[in-house]
Write a protein that binds this DNA or RNA. Structure first.
Lengths: 110, 110
DNA sequence: ATTATCCATCGTAATATTGCGATGAAAAGA
DNA sequence: TCTTTTCATCGCAATATTACGATGGATAAT
């Protein structure tokens, strides 16, 4: 064991969990915040910004890119990263839809 | 290595990442959705609902409880779980605040 | 008192994540 | 051409997560 039993859950549940996992690390939060602030940056900027090794930073970028929430393009020797607006909005809508559902007219349950 | 270097990041970044981690598993998403739908339920209901072993279900409940987003109370032989409305709203506001920041007047960056 | 039910916890195995040094590919500049 | 810069990837080690059977404590029912 040790592997998530994805087959037990709906597509929506798996997708929302995957989205959460993509941002479930402070370095990846920091990368996204930096990108929002600066609009775009190269990998080296993030190495300085985060204080993590270059290999580690690159790995986090890879995960964010795999999740679709950022995109990278080669810019000569550099690689320039930025937010993918469509996917970003999709994340926003998914999370907001998930948390909006609840009706808390009363705080009691048991 | 293997442990997240939390000291490199701000409190906000660590907290948001921890929130995301709490819901970064389809079983925990499913538990929260079930609780939203039913308002409250006992652990045994979730074992049937999820199709995971009792020990595994209990472990996911423990994580959600540790994150504060649900609460449990002993109800005779059963343990009754429900959403913690304050924390739920805090999650909602944190995520919505995070995703709202971005300004996508144009989708280009590099 | 005995039994049955519910569930938290322990122990363990399998797998995933995090982090870094080392290496190498690609492009720019000398 | 040779060097430098930038970054992705590989390989490894440390740690975390996921899942389950087994056990035991607590309460209810007989």
């Amino acid at each position: 064991m040790g592997a998530t039993k994805s087959a037990l859950f709906t597509r929506e549940q798996n997708e929302l969990a995957a989205m959460a996992k993509a941002i479930a690390h402070p370095a990846r939060i920091a990368i996204l915040q930096y990108l929002v602030r600066k609009n775009a940056c190269v990998c080296g900027d993030l190495v300085d910004e985060l204080g993590l090794a270059q290999a580690t930073t690159s790995q986090h970028l890879k995960e964010l890119k795999l999740a679709g929430i950022i995109q990278g393009s080669i810019e000569g020797v550099n690689v320039c990263y930025c937010i993918n607006p469509e996917v970003w909005n999709r994340y926003r809508d998914f999370f907001s839809g998930f948390f909006k559902k609840v009706d808390l007219k009363d705080g009691k349950c048991c």
